[in-house]
């Protein structure tokens, strides 16, 4: 909970954060009037530590550390329900996306390590094969989380229905994809330092 934390307004800091989000997401969080319509419609708010509305508020306070370190931005499924309904025309989902990008660039250690690991695994596979190989992704993820045998039955069911192809495809374009992914990984690495 943040309720008890002392906040010291720093308008320059909030202006800077809002500005960076404006550049990345093309939207001004300063317009938010805290109606909560984003949160009311968010499918995943129960898995978040701050509600989307609170994220907007924290951004407006310039609370960069908190918004880049929270679960919420990683739990967001980018379903755009918030964006299409916002009466202030703030692109809320795009703000979440911008905050994720910022968090990566700043090399912030995320509390949602499992989600992050899932994404990185995904990229590793796509960067290597050019296409997603679902079995590798699921297996890799299970190894990472140590929940190797959870969903085993489900996996078997899928296999029996021919829905898990055992061997990845690898088109020629994989090399170009690898290049794009390594552009990103390079930036990640710099951010991490």
């Amino acid at each position: 909970m943040v309720g008890s934390r002392l906040m010291r307004p720093d308008l320059q800091k909030s202006e800077r954060l809002r500005q960076r989000i404006q550049e990345l997401a093309g939207t001004d969080v300063g317009r938010c009037y805290q109606c909560g319509k984003c949160t009311g419609g968010c499918p995943l708010v129960e898995a978040m530590d701050f509600t989307p509305r609170q994220i907007m508020r924290l951004v407006n306070w310039g609370a960069e550390d908190e918004v880049l370190r929270c679960q919420t931005i990683w739990v967001c499924a980018t379903c755009f329900t918030c964006t299409v309904r916002c009466p202030r025309q703030i692109k809320v989902a795009e703000v979440m996306e911008a905050l994720r990008s910022l968090a990566r660039r700043e090399g912030v250690r995320s509390p949602a390590r499992d989600i992050l690991r899932f994404h990185r695994l995904f990229l590793a596979i796509v960067g290597r094969f050019g296409r997603l190989h679902e079995l590798s992704l699921v297996m890799g993820y299970k190894v990472f989380t140590g929940r190797l045998f959870q969903d085993l039955g489900l996996g078997l069911q899928m296999f029996l229905r021919g829905k898990l192809s055992p061997v990845p495809e690898r088109p020629g374009g994989a090399r170009q994809l690898a290049r794009i992914v390594s552009w990103w990984a390079e930036r990640e690495r710099k951010g991490g330092r």
């Binding site: 909560g36 009311g40 968010c42 708010v45 509600t51 329900t81 009466p87």
Partner: peptide
């Protein structure tokens, strides 16, 4: 309740309302 309602779902002849209570930061 302070919050703009996000969605009204018809359920039979009742209605399900979903919103945030913004004063406590929880979904309602």
């Amino acid at each position: 309740v302070r919050g703009r309602v996000a969605r009204v779902f018809p359920h039979g002849d009742r209605l399900r309302i979903r919103a945030e209570d913004t004063l406590i930061g929880r979904r309602l």
